[in-house]
């Protein structure tokens, strides 16, 4: 772990592996809930880093963080949510081909995995979900779509994600859900907040 300066009011915690980001993020949230973390406006996890923004004294916190002992992430950590999916995506056959399986096998493969929201970005409520084993990673589409329907379950690189609303996108679309990913009137507005564990179940309908 190392800390990098980000202007006068923020710092970036850089970690060595995805798993460490999750564990460190969970520890930050625990300490914030316990009231032992200095006031911070934003805690933004990403692929290998966590941004802490809106700090009175980033340098002091950087020193403090270096002394932390962070327990590894347990399997039970984080809230859990289940998302029902119809496997009707236009790229289902392509993804099955890349995996070397038949399209009808994809739902069971995806359904057997436990995903975790590593971080959000791209659009409000768009979570980057880790949990795909390496041999299930797929490339982005060569040509992005100008419009991906809301609720599309999609894969790209090491990530899975669900489009909270219609937008352009280059991920491989394997299914669709009716789950409401983003609702500003809900608390939290995003269904998939960082740290949440996600299972995709097959929607028979």
């Amino acid at each position: 772990m190392r800390t990098l300066p980000v202007g006068e009011r923020a710092l970036l915690v850089e970690l060595d592996a995805d798993g460490e980001v999750g564990a460190f993020h969970a520890e930050l949230l625990r300490r914030r809930a316990a009231g032992t973390l200095p006031e911070v406006r934003e805690i933004v996890p990403a692929a290998r880093t966590i941004l802490l923004d809106g700090l009175a004294d980033p340098r002091a916190l950087a020193v403090e963080l270096a002394a932390w002992t962070v327990p590894p992430l347990t399997a039970e950590a984080g809230a859990e949510t289940e998302i029902r999916v119809r496997y009707d995506g236009p790229d289902l056959a392509d993804v099955a081909g890349l995996w070397g399986v038949r399209p009808e096998e994809v739902p069971d493969i995806v359904g057997g995995l436990v995903f975790r929201v590593a971080f959000c970005g791209f659009a409000p409520g768009f979570g980057y979900l880790t949990g795909l084993p390496e041999h299930r990673h797929v490339p982005r589409r060569a040509t992005p779509r100008t419009s991906v329907p809301a609720g599309s379950l999609a894969l790209a690189g090491p990530y899975a994600g669900v489009y909270p609303r219609s937008s352009p996108g280059g991920w491989q679309l394997i299914g669709t859900t009716d789950a409401v990913l983003w609702d500003p009137r809900r608390e939290p507005a995003a269904l998939l907040t960082p740290g949440t564990q996600v299972r995709f179940t097959r929607d028979a309908a």
Partner: peptide
Amino acid sequence: RPGHAHLGV
């Protein structure tokens, strides 16, 4: 609307 960056806002 600060405070929601972790949700992509």
